[in-house]
Amino acid sequence: MNILAYDFMQRALLAALLTGLAAPAVGTYLVQRRLALLGDGIGHVAVTGVALGLLTGQAPVLTAIVVATLGAILIEVIRARARTSGDVALALLFYGGIAGGVLLAELEGGTARLHEYLFGSIATASPADVWATVGLAIVVVSVAVGMSPQFFAVCQDEDFAAVQGLNVRLYSVAMSVLAAVTITIAMRTVGLLLVSALMVVPVATAQQIARGFRLTLATAMAVGTLAAVGGVTTSFYADVAPGATIVLLALAVFVATWPIGAAIRYRRRLVEPFEEPDAIAVRTEHQAAESHPHEHDEYCQHPAVVHGDHVDYVHDGHRHAPHGDHYDEH
């Protein structure tokens, strides 16, 4: 059977492709701010949003976006104002979100329909759902990539970014809102409980092999797309839940790149065992060494070290460089 022969699978693959691009793009900034679990926090809050939609007969995607965005802003406010560390703020919302969602779903008549949103159920997504996903994902990816110099600076060093004239709080809230939107569009694909994995695991994978921020961002988006599209395809043929398949596939890629990352780190250690010598050579003032009983040459048994354009001789823990009739300390 051909996966592309079904309309709903075509839509599912398109949604997976864009989700796979968007989630790691936002996730990279969350990891950079050491808020890797923010996605989980917002995902849990979105559960309340979905349940609210089911209860009131509104589209769950709509109510989820509204509630998740409010939750994301609330997390930022708690972080900025309440002198509570980020992880405590997240924990508060975790529990509130899940408890609220389950309670509202029970009022509606049971948690069965909530399951579609908790673990993903891509095949039941309507065309309208998919087009909303596509539109929002394009917005998220454009903002996350287009504004990357600004987001990078804010995540790297808030104090410095503020003195560059950036409105740090506004950018922080914008990042949280991007995360909220991403989570809502990903909930039909991977589900609210697993969506954070698609934001974080590809970034962790990219960190193994990529050097530098921009390369990490691009690699994470590639890994996310691979996992999302591969996961949906696998779940179609193997008839298993797409969300779990996508996450396990992403984790498998992480495990596969681990040895490569370990090898890269090992080689870097060998290449750079010590501080660069030019940092030492900065001390340029002339400093003559103590008087000397012998001349340094290749027979004097003091270890010779090539230092720029000349040779130093290691001498009782410091270095002597020949200079005319005496030796300089280097």
């Binding site: 990891v31 701010r33 110099p149 600004q150 790297q156 410095f160 050097r211 990490t216």
Partner: peptide, 20 residues
Amino acid sequence: ASGVPATVWEVVASGRLARR
């Protein structure tokens, strides 16, 4: 350093933001 590795060039480049 921060949560995601960045190169020397990338960190220094963020010093141009007020002019971009």
